[in-house]
Measured scan of single mutants.
Amino acid sequence: TGIVNVSSSLNVRSSASTSSKVIGSLSGNTKVTIVGEEGAFYKIEYKGSHGYVAAEYI
């Protein structure tokens, strides 16, 4: 489990890349469940599926 540490919002992406499609966003202080790690990204549970967020902001 981690907490989103941004002042505005954090993009949730379809894969572990900044060039991948943005599938949603999370606001600051949102609690997320981390299920894996790929490079600089965490794989998280997101809306019944999975998404990827930049690990530096969690």
Rank of each mutant, 00 (worst) to 15 (best):
I44N: 01
S15Y: 08
A55Y: 06
G36P: 02
S7R: 10
G28W: 12
G2Y: 09
S19F: 10
S8Q: 11
V32W: 02
I3S: 06
H50G: 04
E37C: 15
S17R: 06
T1R: 08
T33G: 03
S20I: 03
A16K: 03
S25E: 12
I23K: 03
S14M: 13
E38Y: 10
T30A: 11
Y46L: 03
E45S: 07
S19R: 09
S7M: 12
A54D: 10
V53K: 01
E56A: 12
H50V: 14
G24M: 05
Y46K: 00
A55N: 06
K47R: 10
N5Q: 08
S9K: 12
S14A: 15
V12D: 02
S25N: 09
E45V: 13
S25G: 06
T1N: 09
V53I: 08
Y46R: 00
F41K: 01
I58P: 02
V4N: 04
N29L: 10
G28C: 12
S8G: 15
G48W: 05
K31N: 08
G36A: 10
L26S: 01
A54S: 10
V32S: 00
I3N: 06
V35R: 04
V35M: 09
V22P: 05
S14W: 08
V22R: 04
A16P: 14
T1W: 15
V35S: 04
Y52W: 12
I34L: 05
V22E: 04
T33I: 13
G39Q: 05
S19H: 12
S20L: 04
S27D: 12
S8P: 12
I3G: 04
K21H: 10
E38V: 10
L26M: 06
G2Q: 05
T33N: 10
A40C: 12
S27Q: 13
V32N: 00
S9E: 11
A16C: 06
N29F: 13
A40W: 07
S15G: 13
A40N: 12
K21S: 12
I3Y: 14
K47P: 02
R13D: 03
G36M: 06
S14Y: 11
G39H: 05
V35D: 02
V12R: 04
S27T: 12
A16I: 05
K47S: 08
Y46E: 01
G51Q: 02
I58N: 02
K31A: 10
F41W: 13
I34R: 00
F41Q: 02
Y57I: 03
I44H: 00
G48S: 07
S7V: 11
A54G: 08
N5T: 11
Y42D: 01
S9H: 12
K43T: 03
N29M: 11
A54T: 07
N5G: 06
V53E: 01
S49T: 12
K43L: 09
G2S: 06
Y52Q: 00
K43I: 13
V53C: 03
A55H: 07
V4D: 03
G39P: 02
S9P: 11
T18N: 13
A54H: 10
A54I: 14
I3P: 03
E38I: 09
V6L: 08
G2F: 09
N5M: 12
I44F: 01
S9F: 13
K31V: 14
S17L: 07
S14T: 08
G28T: 11
G28L: 10
Y52C: 00
A16E: 03
I3Q: 07
E37S: 14
E38K: 06
A54E: 15
T1H: 13
S8F: 14
I3T: 09
H50C: 09
S20F: 07
A40V: 09
S25R: 13
I58S: 01
S8T: 14
Y57N: 08
V6H: 10
S14D: 13
S49H: 10
Y42R: 02
G48L: 06
V4W: 04
L10W: 03
Y57P: 02
G24K: 02
N5Y: 08
V35A: 05
A54F: 14
A55P: 02
I58E: 01
F41N: 03
S14G: 10
A40T: 09
R13V: 12
S15P: 02
Y57E: 07
Y42F: 10
E38P: 01
H50N: 05
T1A: 10
I44C: 05
A16T: 06
G2M: 08
T30D: 10
S8D: 13
V53M: 02
V12K: 01
S27H: 11
E45K: 10
S27R: 14
I23W: 02
G39C: 05
S27E: 13
Y57L: 07
G51F: 03
I23A: 02
V32A: 01
G51V: 03
S25D: 06
E37K: 15
V53N: 01
I23Y: 02
N11V: 15
K43S: 03
N11L: 15
Y46G: 00
A40M: 12
I34T: 00
V4S: 06
E37R: 15
Y42T: 03
G39K: 06
N11A: 15
S8V: 12
F41I: 01
Y57T: 05
T18R: 10
V12W: 02
S15A: 13
G48V: 03
T33F: 10
L26W: 02
Y57W: 08
S25H: 14
Y46I: 03
E56K: 13
G36N: 06
I34C: 04
Y52A: 00
I58F: 05
T1I: 15
K43M: 09
A16Y: 05
G2L: 07
T1L: 11
V12G: 00
V53T: 01
G51W: 03
L10E: 03
G28E: 08
V6T: 14
N29P: 07
H50E: 07
S27A: 14
Y46A: 00
V6F: 08
S49D: 08
G51N: 01
A40K: 10
T18Y: 15
V4R: 03
Y52H: 01
K21R: 11
T30S: 13
N29E: 07
K31D: 05
T18E: 13
K47C: 13
G28F: 14
V53Y: 02
V32L: 05
L10I: 15
N11M: 14
I34Q: 01
I58R: 00
S17T: 09
S19P: 06
G48H: 06
